[in-house]
C-alpha cells in the first residue's frame, strides 16, 4: 500500500519536474522573501472554587459501547431517583454524559450528550419536570477509570447524576 503511494508521489514529482523544466527552460527562478514571525500571547484561566451542590444520593448509570439505550439495571437506578425528584420539586439535577476513549472526541461528546438525553427522556416520561433537569456532556474528557481496556471503558460509558 505504502509502496503504491510511493510510486504515485514519485511519478507526480517527475511530472512536475518536467513541467517546470519545460516552462522555465533557461531561466532560474529567483525569489526574495522576508521571514514573518508573529508574536504570540497566551492566556491563563484560573480554577474556580467548586460550587456547593444540593445533596442528593449521587447515582451513575452505565451504557453499552456506542449506545445510549438504557439497560434494565440503569432503569432500576433511575426508579429510585424518580421518587426523590417527585418528592423534592425544587431539586435541580445535572445529567452529565460521558463516553469511553475509543472513537473521535467530537463524536464522543455527542454520544455523551445522547446518553444524558436518554436518561432525561426516561425521567420526563415518568413525571419528572424538565425544569429540574439539565443535560451536559464531557465526552471522553473526564474518564472515571484510566487505562485502555474493557473494564475501564465500561466504567467510563456513563451518565453521572449530580
Amino acid at each position: 500500500m505504502v509502496v503504491t503511494l510511493n510510486k504515485q508521489i514519485i511519478l507526480k514529482i517527475i511530472l512536475l519536474t518536467i513541467v517546470i523544466g519545460a516552462s522555465s527552460c533557461s531561466s532560474v527562478r529567483v525569489t526574495n522573501e522576508s521571514v514573518v514571525e508573529e508574536g504570540v500571547r497566551g492566556v491563563t484561566i484560573s480554577k474556580k472554587a467548586p460550587e456547593t451542590q444540593a445533596i442528593l444520593a449521587n447515582a451513575t448509570v452505565y451504557f453499552e459501547y456506542d449506545s445510549s439505550r438504557l439497560t434494565s439495571k440503569s432503569i432500576q437506578t433511575l426508579k429510585g431517583l424518580i421518587s426523590v425528584l417527585e418528592n423534592n420539586r425544587n431539586l435541580d439535577i445535572v445529567l452529565e454524559g460521558h463516553a469511553d476513549e475509543r472513537g473521535t472526541r467530537e463524536y464522543n461528546l455527542a454520544l455523551g450528550q445522547r446518553r444524558a438525553e436518554s436518561v432525561a427522556a426516561y425521567l420526563l416520561s415518568n413525571g419528572v419536570s424538565r425544569s429540574q433537569l439539565k443535560t451536559i456532556s464531557y465526552g471522553e474528557e473526564r474518564p472515571a477509570a484510566l487505562g485502555s481496556n474493557n473494564a475501564s471503558w465500561a466504567k467510563n460509558r456513563r451518565v453521572e447524576i449530580k
Partner: peptide, 11 residues
C-alpha cells in the same frame, strides 16, 4: 543548470 536562486531576509 541552476534552478533557483533565492534570498531569505530575517532576524
Amino acid at each position: 543548470r541552476e534552478v533557483r536562486s533565492s534570498t531569505v531576509f530575517g532576524l
